[in-house]
Design a protein around this nucleic acid. Sequence first.
RNA 1: GCGAGAGUGGCGGAACUGGCAGACGCGCGAGACUUAGGAUCUCGUGGGAAACCGUGGGGGUUCAAGUCCCUCCUCUCGCACCA
Length: 811
Amino acid sequence: MSRPYDHQAIEAKWQAYWEQDRTFRASEDPARPKFYCLDMFPYPSGSGLHVGHLEGYTATDIVSRFKRMQGFNVLHPMGWDAFGLPAEQYAVKTGVHPAITTAENIATFKRQMKRVGLSYDWERELSTTDPGYYRWTQWIFLKLFERGLAYVAEVPVNWCPALSTVLANEEIVDGKSEVGGFDVVRKPMRQWVLKITAYAERLLDDLALVDWPASTLEMQKNWIGRSIGAEVEFELAGARGSLRIFTTRPDTLFGATYMVLAPEHPLVDAVTAPDRRDEVAAYRDAAARKSDLQRQELEKDKTGVFTGGHAINPVNGEQLPVWIADYVMMSYGTGAIMAVPAHDERDWAFARTYRLPIREVISGGDVSKEAFVETGRGTVVNSTTPDGSFSIDGLAPGDAIPKITAWLESRGKGKKTINYKLRDWLFARQRYWGEPFPILWVEGEAKPLPEEQLPLMLPETKNFKPSGSGESPLANLDVWLATTDPATGKPARRETNTMPQWAGSCWYYLRFIDPKNSRQLVDPVRERYWMPVDLYIGGSEHAVLHLLYARFWHKVLYDIGVVSTPEPFKKLVHQGIVLGEDNQKMSKSRGNVVNPDEMIERFGADAVRLYEMFMGPLEAMKPWSTRGVEGVTRFLDRVWRLTVHDDGSLSRAVVAADPSADQRRLLHQTVKKVTEDLEELRFNTAISQMMVFTNELTKLDRRPRALLEPFVLLLAPFAPHLCEELWEKLGHAPCVSRQPWPAFDPALVVSDRFEIPIQVNGKLRSKIEVPADWTEEQVVTSATEAAGDWLQGKPPRKVIYVAKRLVNFVV
RNA sequence: GCGAGAGUGGCGGAACUGGCAGACGCGCGAGACUUAGGAUCUCGUGGGAAACCGUGGGGGUUCAAGUCCCUCCUCUCGCACCA
């Protein structure tokens, strides 16, 4: 494609201008409203940016430029989530230090971003691997530790004996190590764990405060997984102690016909009868050997073993056989259940397999065919205590639940309980390339490092191979490991785990506000000015973990007074995935990866930006089309020719004359549409309207400045390089990025004439054009005439008139 | 299985609180300018000869349905024995 202008030269020119002008530098200005516009910062991988990254970055860039022109003080920063596994794996293979790889990759990403013309305030750039940054990551950890929110536990990890190392989930394929295909087993290991469960309630409730996609809210809700029910005590028969179970259906307590413990449950030994010990032990061993994955996959056939023991149902004194089965999980609730096969699908399936009794206590279904689990209908039956003193018979399940819960509570047999699916957060990796924990082990006890000693620097090494013991490569560094406790002078050993990649990304949005502060994580005055993030755009793959972890840390920081808002991210949007031209997911193996550098080379950054936004709705998954890029390139070329003559001078068609009324209306309609669409992130329809405008203007041989100049401003956030150049060609000093956003006059948007479609029996038969001030009578009269033959000369049975919309005759 | 979202021309996609379905772009067709055009500009382009038919299928409400209701089908994403 030959272009009417040299996009390469113009882009380089204006990128250099913005750089030396520091056009996009943000500073606090209490006089102006702020807008914090944030991208999820990337992991700087070796393969560079792809067109999928660019979609989200372009969107936030357009919004940032738009908001600046609207008079907002915009904070639009970028940084690097640069700790992580790939650089470390590369180091193990090649010996190249992760810091070197990381720096190279960052340089590539930054070069590519600048080439796209993204208007970041690069003076706030940060990297999670920078000691000046991770000092505060460590500081936050100390605060968590102080508040009892960080603790040590023995947690099973993916241990690969052949490699003598712990593997991340993503390093395991089909239960084997990705490298070498060796077996992986579960092995308990000392780990740091964060007590996110202590915040479960608030993490759930405060979802009401944010403007997020419904699907993401739903995912977070499900992940937290609150369920309300009751814990009930069952005394053991013939043994000391009692079995505590959790149920959401205490209304079905009279229908319990057996009990199930998770195989790992601590009471298994106590309940197991001597003659069942061998069988029980064998089942427990088998369950322990299964990975979580295997336990889940064997979903269909439930297995279990009778322990020989019994527990007593507190409502009727019945002795219930106690089983163990791996369909009950130790990690949820109390690790024990009462089984009500008539009203629980899992219990029903289990009872069928082992011929256990099924007793109906909610009528309304046929429990001989399947479990009846609905709570919305049905009536409680067979649920009266043997002495007749208490009954929930005849109630709806919803009414029976509080009644029986209160009764249990009054007798000390149970209480209302809320349970969460959310588990505490395993916060340790056996890796080198991560934040070291500011923790010393003194006489077997974890002691926090004093704040003044932060950052605890990641020690230098040339050996990135795992220690072999399952500990991180840091365990090889004897000199670093051995230290003394500053408080007591006793010998101490440093913690060898490092933090997971999530750590640095949990709070980076706060550091952008005050990236150079050496005294505080963030200055409170600045924090109050900029927070919360007004718009946060990133992939939906982070819908749960990153966003939940960041919210958790934010709430802790809120509790200790570091931040002023309960939630960090006000509005969240996920950009959709960009597919290859073949409608398949982009991948090297398919050979359908689109290289943004090549696209920018051919069509220019403006065209690529514009196409990214024109493809379709931001959130939608959609295929790339290089033809489509050509299409928007043609549009930009037309915009250029509208203003500039072939020899590069201002076109003689550009005149000072006033636009016509129709032209002015088109302009105001366009300003309105683009403004409103940008507020709603509907970039594709905004561009479409600008195309309509351009098509109209192309037809004119005299093009009034009063039309062209506001239009250049409208297009500027989308195609900033082109518009800076056109603004200059139009005789203005730089730069367009500092111009105010055009306003529209609602009175000038509406037309003085309307085209009214005329329907007969709902079918379109004709159209008339009428002045806007005509009365209904005038319009209908004219419409009747226009409908002519379709009315067959008879008066219509009914006339529907929708003002300025349509006329419909019913005959 | 459960939860959430989505099905509109050859393709990507428009369509406000029910009111002209297919804006805009791609592709395709015709023409203009040209030594030439894979450049540019102009016009046309849902299907059908037409009556008419058309927003995943079927049914309903309404003067009027892509939009509301019922039902079924397909696809995408998430969760997956959570008691």
